[in-house]
Amino acid sequence: MTASDPVAARADDVWKVYGSGEAEVIALRGVSVTFQRGVFTAIMGPSGSGKSTLMHCLAGLDSVTRGEVRIGETTVTGLGDAGLTRLRRDKVGFIFQQFNLLPTLSAKENILLPLAIAGRKPDDAWFDTVIRTVGLQDRLEHRPAQLSGGQQQRVACARALVARPEVIFADEPTGNLDSRSGADVLGFLRDSVRQHGQTIVMVTHDPVAASYADRVIFLADGAVVDELHDPSPDMVLDRMKKLDAPAEVER
């Protein structure tokens, strides 16, 4: 990666088809989208519009049917298992709605897991910064079951941030949280973008959550249909209503 390259991730005419014959579902139909480095992007759209699918394809968790995906300078499409493993280890981080922590490890161990797997030494100063940002100083030795949902999600955020990946993909990270915890999580996701130049792509249903982002992409029926910059919740809500309306009429 070169600092001059402003693109952290991009999808080029990406199609994703699940199943075949009767059971065929076209989840993505020719999605082309670019994610700039150091930008917080939200992806919105009705349920089933292909948000999660797009994210999985971007992150190399799922293969694309047609088109090409790149993360930084790496062409994800066509990578073998070893290449994808390296990609996940070195270039991307994940935060999911289900917090996806290893139940057997403490918060601290969960946070350091990606580094341990990669055999990298944690940068102590950065670790402290991350922990302070997410406010987990006195919860490090607890295990996931002993933490609240919001705390667990903060652990997941810290885990993604501490490895300083090229891109962090977050799928409805606040979907399970109350507005207060959600605001906390969103706050430091935004801070990590503003202060540390982290790139984040976040799927969300919540207009308020989307308003934390620098840019919102709207997906409907597997295609990008709209885009907003520096959104406010009202603007987002407005666009969402427009998106939902035609669908309602069709039904």
């Binding site: 493993t85 280890r89 897991l113 990669a118």
Partner: peptide, 15 residues
């Protein structure tokens, strides 16, 4: 599931 999660956080098949 745990193993899938490990793979998600970057563990290779060998690991």
């Amino acid at each position: 599931r745990d193993l899938a999660l490990l793979r998600m956080t970057g563990a290779g098949r060998g690991q």
